[in-house]
């Protein structure tokens, strides 16, 4: 048992952190929000192997590698990278598992290489497709059917300007059968896990920037980070994030076991709460500047609020956890 990242896994995280730092995501996020879907970053992520993590080897990928997926999603969250990244990763699992040989052979190698942007929807679960206008392919999983789809009308205005959400309608059936809902379930769990990891990365970045601000911002003749009220908010934020992280990696390690959906839900609920509490603290400690559109961390704060409810609300995931807890003998706490 060695429950820490190995050297290669850490290197993947460091590489992505370097790449995304250099890319300068705040400007990219604002451009993406304005409808500029430049794919330079997407291609670079593809070259680093991010999308290959969800694509099996027979289709040109390296996956599924859930631990590495969590590492990558954490860094993508830390930099609030825009675009349907989680959706594309989930689409890979959906195409691979749906017994849709033709579409899988056509799209999976392109996804793995970072040459395809894919979005998806599913009635009831994923009601609007993220960045559908930027996607080369939109999937719609509905019961035993897998369809391709197209946007139906303009994006719905949302809190995070970089999350452009579209209603979609089906156009062509790609596969039918019991494999589709099974693949959709796996894709959903992988997406929820990646979303949890993104939230942890978003939370980490918000904690770091807020600590930095508290050390330099002066009021009453001293850095505000000297005040216990501020310290305790930040200590709570760290504590929440520190204990949500092992749940995400634990879930990644249970991929393929019957515990995977339960463990994903535990991770998603905890990461949502931890990241959201951190975002609230970031806003409060920054004061009015954090409440402005022009201050970059506000992009992170808005994304946290959005992802908290994306891929299942905390309440959905808590219910799923409890439904999966086995019976024990007694009900006394001895």
């Amino acid at each position: 048992m060695r429950f820490v990242l190995d050297t290669e896994q850490r290197l993947l995280g460091d590489t992505l952190h370097g790449l995304l730092t250099k890319a300068g995501t705040p400007a990219l996020i604002r451009r993406w929000a304005a409808g500029d879907h430049d794919r330079t970053l997407w291609s670079a992520l593809g070259e680093t192997g991010v999308f290959a993590l969800a694509v099996p080897e027979r289709h040109g990928g390296a996956g599924p590698l859930p631990v590495e997926l969590v590492v990558a999603a954490h860094e993508l969250g830390r930099h609030a990278a825009p675009g349907p990244i989680v959706e594309t990763l989930a689409a890979a699992a959906l195409l691979d598992g749906s017994a849709a040989a033709g579409p899988a052979a056509e799209w999976l190698p392109r996804i793995a290489a970072g040459q395809a942007v894919v979005s998806l929807g599913s009635p009831g679960r994923i009601r609007r497709a993220l960045d559908a206008d930027a996607a080369d392919l939109i999937l719609l999983a509905d019961g035993e059917h897998l369809f391709s789809a197209v946007p139906e009308g303009p994006a719905v205005r949302a809190l995070d300007p970089a999350r452009r959400l579209f209603p979609v309608r089906q156009v062509e059936r790609l596969a039918t059968g019991p494999a589709v809902p099974r693949a959709a379930a796996t894709a959903y769990d992988l997406a929820a896990l990646a979303c949890a990891a993104q939230l942890l990365g978003l939370g980490r970045a918000l904690l770091d920037v807020t600590v930095k601000y508290a050390r330099t911002r002066r009021q009453f003749g001293r850095p505000i980070g000297e005040f216990q009220a501020v310290k305790h908010h930040l200590a709570n934020a760290l504590t929440g994030l520190e204990f949500a992280r092992p749940l995400a990696y634990g879930a990644a390690l249970s991929f393929g076991s019957p515990d995977f959906p339960r463990d994903v839900s535990a991770a998603k609920a905890a990461a949502s709460d931890a990241a959201y509490a951190t975002a609230r603290t970031a806003l409060q400690v920054h004061g009015a500047i954090g409440y402005t559109d022009e201050y970059d961390p506000s992009l992170w704060i808005r994304k946290v609020r959005a992802l908290r409810s994306a891929w299942g609300t905390p309440a959905d995931h808590r219910a799923r956890v409890l439904a999966a807890v086995p019976e024990v003998r007694g009900e006394s706490p001895r």
């Binding site: 092992p246 609920a269 409890l322």
Partner: peptide, 21 residues
């Protein structure tokens, strides 16, 4: 009370995994 019960269970799991870490 469901959310609170689930949360206690999730946090106990988190502490277990943190211990392994």
């Amino acid at each position: 009370l469901r959310d609170r019960v689930a949360d206690a269970w999730i946090k106990a799991r988190a502490y277990r995994l943190k211990g392994f870490e």
